Computed example of a mutant assay.
Amino acid sequence: MQNAGEAATNSAVRKPTNLSLDAALLSEEKALQVNLSRAAEDGVRSAVSAAKSEQWKKENAPALRSSNAYVEKKGLLR
């Protein structure tokens, strides 16, 4: 069974892209027969996810602080 990332990877439209990568890393990739496009895509997907998470935290920080202050003052149960 595929997870959401695998399903998106298999059905996504691909666009050729040029990358500059560490030469030693590329040598290892070739020796180990790693699918470079798939590995790069997985890495970019992970970086985008992390960036979205950080963006969400920044955008929602005031609401989270307000909620935490309310809970500190009034408690969780009323």
Rank of each mutant, 00 (worst) to 15 (best):
L26D: 05
E6I: 09
A23H: 05
A40Q: 01
L77C: 02
A51Y: 06
E72L: 06
A50M: 12
K52P: 00
A40R: 00
V71W: 01
D22F: 02
K52D: 07
A7W: 08
G75I: 03
A24R: 08
V71D: 02
S11V: 14
E41K: 01
A23D: 15
D42G: 08
L25T: 09
V13C: 02
S46V: 12
E72A: 09
A8T: 15
R45K: 04
S20Y: 07
S66A: 15
D22T: 06
N18P: 00
N60D: 09
K73R: 15
N10I: 13
S53W: 04
S37K: 01
A47S: 12
Q55M: 09
M1A: 13
K15E: 11
T9P: 01
K57W: 02
E59N: 15
N60A: 11
S27D: 15
K57I: 13
L32H: 03
G5H: 01
S49C: 07
K57T: 09
Q33G: 07
E41H: 01
R14F: 08
S20A: 12
S27K: 15
G43P: 00
S11F: 02
A8L: 15
V13H: 01
Q33N: 15
A4Y: 01
E41T: 10
V44S: 02
Q33W: 04
S11W: 01
E29D: 08
K30Q: 11
E6A: 10
R14L: 13
E54K: 02
L32V: 06
S46L: 13
E54S: 03
A69M: 02
S27M: 12
N68A: 14
L76F: 04
D22I: 05
L76V: 10
V34G: 01
L32K: 09
L64K: 15
L19Y: 05
S67M: 14
E59T: 10
A63R: 13
Y70M: 13
L32E: 09
W56C: 05
L64N: 11
N3R: 07
K30V: 06
R45D: 03
E28H: 05
L19G: 03
K73C: 06
A12H: 08
V44L: 10
V34S: 02
S11P: 00
A31W: 00
Q2V: 11
S20P: 00
N60E: 14
Y70D: 11
A63C: 07
Y70Q: 10
R14S: 11
E28R: 09
N18E: 08
N35Q: 07
Y70E: 12
K74F: 10
A39G: 06
Q55Y: 03
L64P: 03
A8G: 07
P16Y: 08
A69F: 00
A31C: 00
L26P: 00
E72P: 00
R14Y: 08
A39W: 05
L64R: 15
N35I: 09
K15Y: 12
A7K: 15
A47Y: 06
A51L: 14
P62W: 07
N68H: 13
A40M: 02
S27Q: 15
E29L: 12
R65D: 14
R38H: 13
M1S: 14
K57H: 04
V44A: 07
E54A: 07
S46D: 08
S67T: 12
G5S: 03
E72G: 04
E6C: 03
A61I: 08
P62C: 10
Q55I: 11
T9I: 14
N3M: 07
S53V: 13
S46I: 11
R14W: 07
A63Q: 14
L64Y: 12
